[in-house]
């Protein structure tokens, strides 16, 4: 029994992965991904997220030095900051739209 359940779990994981891939495909195909990106881009600029994060980036650049800093250096330090600094309303709105899209997809 246990193994079956475990297997089920594993199956689900694969199914999840497959579902993810297909959702992603749908996102790109329908153009929803682009629309979401555009919406998010505008909201982030408006809220000053971009400027704030830019300041952090410059800090990293200063530390690593102009000559040697790589994209990976920046990505490593800035990605968590980027997630942190997003205003709640922006995140909420995007999630709302994503969920709406998902709901739409499951109905099809």
């Amino acid at each position: 029994m246990q193994t079956t359940i475990m297997a089920d779990y594993g199956d689900r994981k694969i199914k999840d992965a497959q579902m993810r891939a297909s959702i992603n495909q749908k996102l790109v195909e329908t153009g929803e991904k682009e629309r979401l990106k555009e919406l998010l881009r505008n909201k982030l600029i408006e809220s000053g997220w971009r400027d704030e994060l830019k300041a952090h980036c410059k800090e990293v650049v200063r530390r690593k030095g102009l000559e040697h800093v790589t994209v990976d250096d920046l990505v490593a330090e800035i990605t968590p900051k980027g997630r942190e600094l997003v205003p709640d309303e922006v995140k909420r709105e995007l999630l709302h739209r994503i969920r709406a899209f998902l709901a739409q997809q499951s109905n099809i």
Binding site: A21, Q25, K26, V28, E29, G31
Partner: peptide
Amino acid sequence: NVKRKARAGSCHVCQQCN
């Protein structure tokens, strides 16, 4: 192009796209 990207846009090794 969009359709092609959607279908083919994943890693040849691990099939992940993100």
